[in-house]
Structures are given as structure tokens and as C-alpha cells.
């Protein structure tokens, strides 16, 4: 389906305080692709993510979801198509109970109560969090919060999932579970992260941002092998691709 495509064309964005963060980004993500967005702190990753669902609107250039340009008028449709998962689940889980939070989006779409319930339970089941549904979000562990935050977006049945640092602050096992979970998704996936090992596991394609511009865009394997590029963008080879400290001591 064509609405699974994100197309960004010469996008510029400056924050109201004069900080120019995006300086001409052009990128195209097609249906079902899993793409990593990496780069130094302040390279513009989060700002770019906020452009994908119209939380920020371009200063110049264009963002299109499928056939639809992201403008004020198309916001409702765009936000249903593009689900954005925030870095800090506490920003996203604001309702008194987990169930209410996951139901928040579907209810805003005006679905019938039965339909809402179905979507909510489906989304909770997808992330393995059905047992949490009657708990308030502030009594959850970090991993549980993350799972619920994902469910809260899944319940809108978006075609494209956009995630900001999904593996931050998770213990190794929970992180692994998250990776396995994301592998099962058939959505187009755009993940902004510093966790390059996660990128290696999940995303065949990587986009490297540097100071508001695209420094590289290509197959993850090739980019992760290019040490000069990685170093220039404040990155480092994924740990798994580095030499074993036991076998080959430096």
C-alpha cells in the first residue's frame, strides 16, 4: 500500500530559538523497510522524527506520507498512519491506568467501544502486557513502561512506527526481548538510536545524520564497516564487530 511510504524532500527546520537543526534532508523509506537513524547527540535525529508525524512542520521542503503531504489539514490521517514512540515512556503514558492509556488513541478516533476494546487487547497482547492493563503507569518497571508505550501506539494500527531510542535504559534481557518483539513487526520501522548493535540486529538500512545533513545512507553492514565515517559522526563500530578483547588483546 502506498501510504506506507515516507518521503522527505529537501527538509529544513529551525527551532524558534534560532537553532537550525535540519539543513536539507532528503530521504525515502518504502513499505516494510526497517531503517536506523544514527548520529551524534544533537545531529537532528529527534527533530527529524518529530517531522514524520507533523509534531513539527517543515520550514521549507516537504514531508509526504504516501500520497499525502504533511500539513495542518492532513494531521489526523498522518498521525494515524505514523505512530511515534517517545524516548521517555513517562511522557507518553499519561492516563490513570494502562488500559485507558492504550485506549486513548482509538477513543480519539471515535471507534465504537467494542472495537476500541478489541484494538487495546490486541495491542497489549502484541507486546505481552495484557496482565498490566489495570495498573497505573507509575507502578510499572522501565521495561514494562516501554512495552505499554509501544502498545499505546500499536492500538492505533499505524502503518509506520517511528521510535526514539527504544533500547535506552533497558536491562540487557529486556532489551533483547524488545529487539525480538520489533523483529516480529511488519510495519515500516524508523528507529533513532545510539545502540548500533540493535541496528545490526534489526535494520538492514542505516541513515547517518551529521549536523543536520545526511552523511550516509545505505546498507547497515557497509556503513558499520566504514570506520572513518563512523568516527567522523561521533559513532563507533558496533561492539560485536570489534575484536574480541580475550582472543586478540590490544
Amino acid at each position: 500500500m502506498s501510504h506506507h511510504i515516507i518521503e522527505v524532500d529537501d527538509l529544513h527546520y529551525t527551532y524558534p530559538d534560532g537553532n537550525q537543526v535540519l539543513k536539507g534532508i532528503s530521504v525515502r523509506v518504502t513499505h516494510g523497510e526497517k531503517v536506523a537513524l544514527v548520529g551524534a547527540n544533537g545531529a537532528g535525529k529527534s527533530t527529524l522524527l518529530l517531522q514524520f508525524n507533523g509534531c513539527l512542520l517543515p520550514e521549507s521542503g516537504r514531508v509526504r506520507i504516501g500520497e499525502m503531504p504533511v500539513t495542518k489539514k492532513t494531521l489526523k490521517h498522518v498521525r494515524r498512519t505514523v505512530g511515534l514512540i517517545f524516548q521517555d515512556p513517562d511522557d507518553q503514558l499519561f492516563m490513570p491506568l494502562v488500559y485507558d492509556d492504550v485506549a486513548f488513541g482509538p477513543l480519539n478516533l471515535g471507534l465504537s467501544p467494542e472495537e476500541v476494546d478489541r484494538q487495546v487487547m490486541q495491542a497489549l497482547a502484541a507486546v505481552g502486557a495484557v496482565h498490566l492493563k489495570d495498573r497505573p503507569p507509575y507502578h510499572l518497571s522501565g521495561g514494562e513502561k516501554r512495552a505499554v508505550a509501544i502498545a499505546a501506539v500499536l492500538s492505533l494500527t499505524p502503518a509506520i512506527l517511528v521510535m526514539d531510542e527504544p533500547s535506552s535504559n533497558l536491562d540487557p534481557k529486556t532489551r533483547r526481548q524488545l529487539i525480538e518483539l520489533l523483529k516480529t513487526f511488519e510495519h515500516s520501522l524508523i528507529i533513532a538510536t545510539h545502540d548500533l548493535d540493535l541496528v545490526l540486529d534489526l535494520c538492514p538500512r542505516t541513515i547517518v545524520l551529521k549536523e543536520g545533513r545526511i552523511a550516509a545512507d545505505g546498507p547497515t553492514r557497509a556503513i558499520m564497516a566504514d570506520e572513518a565515517l563512523l568516527s567522523a559522526c561521533n559513532l563507533e563500530k558496533p561492539l560485536r564487530l570489534q575484536g574480541c578483547p580475550v582472543c586478540t588483546p590490544a
Binding site: 518529530l50 508525524n53 509534531c55 494531521l75 489526523k76 498521525r79 494515524r80 505512530g83 511515534l84 517517545f86 521517555d88 511522557d91 507518553q92 499519561f94 486513548f104 488513541g105 480519539n108 478516533l109 499505546a152 501506539v153 492505533l156
Partner: peptide, 10 residues
């Protein structure tokens, strides 16, 4: 951010 999260979900 919270407001953005709310807007993102309609």
C-alpha cells in the same frame, strides 16, 4: 513533550 504525545494520538 506530553502534549506532543497526546497530539500524536489524536
Amino acid at each position: 513533550r506530553l502534549h506532543l504525545a497526546m497530539l500524536s494520538r489524536g
